Amino acid sequence: MKNPNTLNSKKGFTLVELLVVIAIIAVLAAAGFAGGTAAMNKARKVTAQASATSVQTAIEQFYAEYSALPDVEEQTDTSEGELLNILAGLEGTGNNIQNDRKIRFLSLKESKNGKRDGVVYSANGSSIDSLLDPWGQPFYVVLDTDYDDQIRVTPQGSSAVTLNGRRAAVYSLGVESVGEAKPSTLVKTW
């Protein structure tokens, strides 16, 4: 005959067994979180690279069409929409229209919240206010405005680089704050 106390003692988990299972789950969750963070950062870099390349390609197409670069400052960023509006064919009216054929060289996705990752349009949607990277910072654009096929780029947190045979260079700092920028965080088109 079976002892009823023996049957009851085999049911359930002991406190030690339960704590071991919880510890294992915690270790696996921490490892998964670290891997997830790295994957998210990699996805942000890929998105930023695609946007930077699109801007550079649009500048090259503009040059091929008009035999000149957009008439903006040699070093600019995309927090102001002048360059973007020229490339997107959204310039207003006036005497200094550079893309008079209204060719859309640049077409990027719209930012979902207006604070990061995409084009931010004006309130009425008729022009571009800015282009932000996935970290909420503008992209930086350097143009060969003297047409000598040489650009000097000095990204924040990095040393200067001279690029030969280029008309434009576009980069993102790859971080949420300018002070955090390092050479390893840059997302660049060169």
Rank of each mutant, 00 (worst) to 15 (best):
E73F: 08
E73G: 13
E73R: 02
E74W: 14
E74H: 10
Q75C: 12
T76G: 03
T78N: 07
T78Q: 02
T78D: 08
T78S: 05
S79H: 14
S79V: 11
E80K: 13
E82T: 14
E82W: 05
E82G: 12
E82P: 09
L83S: 07
L84P: 05
L84T: 02
N85M: 05
I86G: 05
I86M: 04
L87F: 01
A88H: 00
G89A: 03
L90G: 00
E91I: 02
E91Y: 03
N96P: 11
I97Y: 09
I97M: 07
Q98W: 06
Q98H: 09
N99P: 13
D100R: 10
I103A: 03
I103S: 01
R104P: 08
R104C: 09
R104L: 12
F105Q: 06
F105I: 02
L106Y: 02
S107R: 08
E110N: 13
K112T: 15
N113K: 08
G114L: 08
G114Y: 10
K115R: 14
R116W: 11
D117W: 06
G118A: 01
V120W: 02
Y121S: 01
Y121H: 02
S122W: 04
A123F: 11
N124H: 04
S126T: 15
S127L: 01
S127P: 05
S130G: 07
S130H: 11
L132G: 08
P134R: 00
P134D: 07
W135L: 05
P138M: 00
F139W: 07
V142D: 15
V142G: 01
L143M: 04
L143N: 03
L143Y: 10
D144H: 04
D144Q: 05
D144V: 08
D144M: 06
T145D: 09
T145G: 04
Y147P: 11
D148T: 10
D148A: 04
D149E: 13
D149P: 15
D149F: 10
Q150H: 11
I151P: 12
R152T: 15
R152Y: 11
P155I: 01
P155C: 07
Q156P: 03
S158D: 15
A160G: 13
A160F: 09
A160I: 06
V161F: 04
T162L: 09
G165M: 09
G165E: 11
R166Y: 12
R166S: 14
